[in-house]
């Protein structure tokens, strides 16, 4: 349903993405893993046209868009079919929780307010934020802001939602509430591409796990194979390292 083909991107003379291809079926939850600086954010941003790639194509429901040279109108049409959840939420500071969720329906899609609010309230209810609907973002905790940001994405009924480390900016106590919402979306069959460092999420929720290193995909498999029987020796090393850091972290938390 969504396919990224031969994506390349360099910043100056750093070749961040060398030749990345990735395909996502309807209902898939793809988790994208990789060390810091391996280009995960860059890939998602290119897939959302927030950065222009140097080469590559994205195909959404059979329609293909050139990641380097798609026209403004094509980009707009493509973006209106996707959702994006950012590491630092990026809620609109001048709008309440509900207005954040309805803005995408009312302003670009010209839906009338009452209908948009009905959809917005449903979305907020789904993420457990109905009781905070009239709060401005500055009055919400990080976890609450992220849940509103997720509601903002799902209210638009996108074909696929990109998540870029949705819990990395959150305290460990707040991570759970966001992951639970994402798990619920996965159970409902939402198609998602999730960049994360949460191994447990990758293991339990993903239908496919992808590991990036040095600008290429080095492993792409179902979670069971990925964690128990990876094809590439670098994958096993990555998993060991991730487990080790997780233990370090939980030890630090205990101290």
């Amino acid at each position: 349903m969504l396919e990224l083909q031969h994506v390349r991107k360099a910043f100056g003379d750093v070749q961040v993405l060398r030749d990345i291809s990735l395909s996502v079926n309807r209902g898939d939850v793809v988790t994208l893993l990789g060390a810091s600086g391996s280009g995960k954010t860059t890939l998602l941003r290119c897939a959302g046209f927030l950065n222009r790639a140097d080469a590559g194509t994205v195909v959404l429901d059979g329609e293909s868009y050139d990641l380097q040279s798609a026209s403004r109108n094509d980009v707009l049409r493509y973006r209106r079919q996707i959702g994006f959840v950012f590491q630092n939420f990026n809620l609109f500071g001048n709008k309440t929780a509900l207005q954040n969720v309805t803005a995408g329906l009312i302003i670009p899609r010209k839906m009338d307010r009452s209908q948009a609010e009905k959809i917005g309230l449903q979305a907020l209810e789904k993420v457990g934020m109905l009781d905070r609907k009239d709060y401005y973002p500055s009055k919400l905790s990080g976890g609450q802001q992220q849940r509103v940001a997720i509601a903002r994405a799902i209210a638009l009924n996108p074909k696929v939602i990109f998540f870029d480390e949705p819990t990395s900016a959150l305290d460990p106590q707040l991570t759970g509430e966001v992951l639970n919402v994402m798990k619920q979306l996965a159970d409902e069959g939402t198609t998602m591409i999730v960049v994360t460092h949460e191994m447990a999420f990758a293991r339990q929720v993903a239908t496919k796990v992808v590991l990036m290193q040095d600008g290429v995909v080095i492993e792409e498999s179902d979670p069971k194979t990925f964690f128990e029987n990876p094809a590439d020796p670098r994958t096993a090393a990555f998993i060991r390292h991730a487990q080790w850091s997780a233990e370090e972290e939980s030890q630090e938390a205990r101290i």
Partner: peptide
């Protein structure tokens, strides 16, 4: 924050819509 412009784009806004409805009011 520039991220709000990114968020507006990914919510379907055009540049003028994002500017006049999100960024400039703030």
């Amino acid at each position: 924050p520039a991220g709000q412009l990114d968020a507006a784009y990914c919510t379907g806004f055009t540049f003028p819509q994002a500017m006049f409805r999100i960024i400039i009011p703030q």
